[in-house]
Simulated scan of single mutants.
Amino acid sequence: MDEEKAKVCFVTTGATAPFTDLIKAVFKTEAVDALQKAGYTHMLVQYGTAKDVFEQSSLNALRHMDGNTPRKPIRIEGIDFKQGLKDEFKLARTSNGLVISHAGSGSILEALRYDVPLIVVPNDRLLHNHQAELAKAMAASNYLLEGNTDNLAPSIAYSESFKMKKAQFPPITSGKHRETEGLEAIMDAELGFQD
């Protein structure tokens, strides 16, 4: 991959439960069109145990890109689960790209650590839908964008202007700009972990 010319969207589905709906969502026509319109050249998808869903969904997306769009097709690659995704997060960051992730706390914190613009998609099939609560709280504080599997295109389109907001870190929260606090202290305060 020519990293100087690449703009990478990295998609991670998590390690504990297959999130096939997210894989299908990133390959929907509207999502692919939004990525192309934003200038993305590559999509790297961590598919985990859902390789068959990845292969079929990506094949459908490639057919759409080849036949129905004047833009250059996005190069699609997939990877299985692996420990640590620092190389993938760094690649998204250095290419002025984006991460689309399940709303698991580990993946969210990892992406934020690498200062990558992030769209999180809660897996509403999980018990108690705990990912939705975390995604809403983090999105309300402007740390990330919340997406859904029905239509990722609006979140993808908005992510380009969100990058500009993200450059003004730390985010403005509750009317008080806390410039002297680090990411960890701000997250603890926003999520209610401080006394």
Rank of each mutant, 00 (worst) to 15 (best):
D195S: 12
N151E: 07
L44V: 14
T180W: 13
P170R: 06
K7M: 05
I74T: 02
A17E: 07
A153W: 03
I186K: 14
L98W: 05
F169K: 12
A15V: 11
G97K: 05
F19T: 00
R71Y: 10
T69Y: 03
E133V: 11
S105E: 12
S58M: 09
N151F: 05
Y158W: 11
D150I: 11
I100H: 05
D33W: 10
I186C: 09
D21E: 13
G84R: 07
M138A: 08
N96V: 04
L152W: 02
K5A: 11
A17P: 01
K28I: 05
R63E: 14
V53A: 08
A111R: 04
P73K: 08
Y143D: 07
E55I: 07
Q46S: 06
E30T: 12
V8A: 00
K176I: 14
D66C: 09
A153I: 03
A189N: 12
L85S: 03
K163Q: 10
I156M: 02
E110K: 10
A50P: 00
A34I: 07
P117T: 00
E160Q: 15
H64K: 10
D195A: 12
F193S: 04
T49V: 10
F10A: 00
R75D: 12
I172G: 10
D21F: 07
R113E: 15
T149D: 00
S174W: 11
S155P: 03
T13K: 03
P171L: 05
F162S: 05
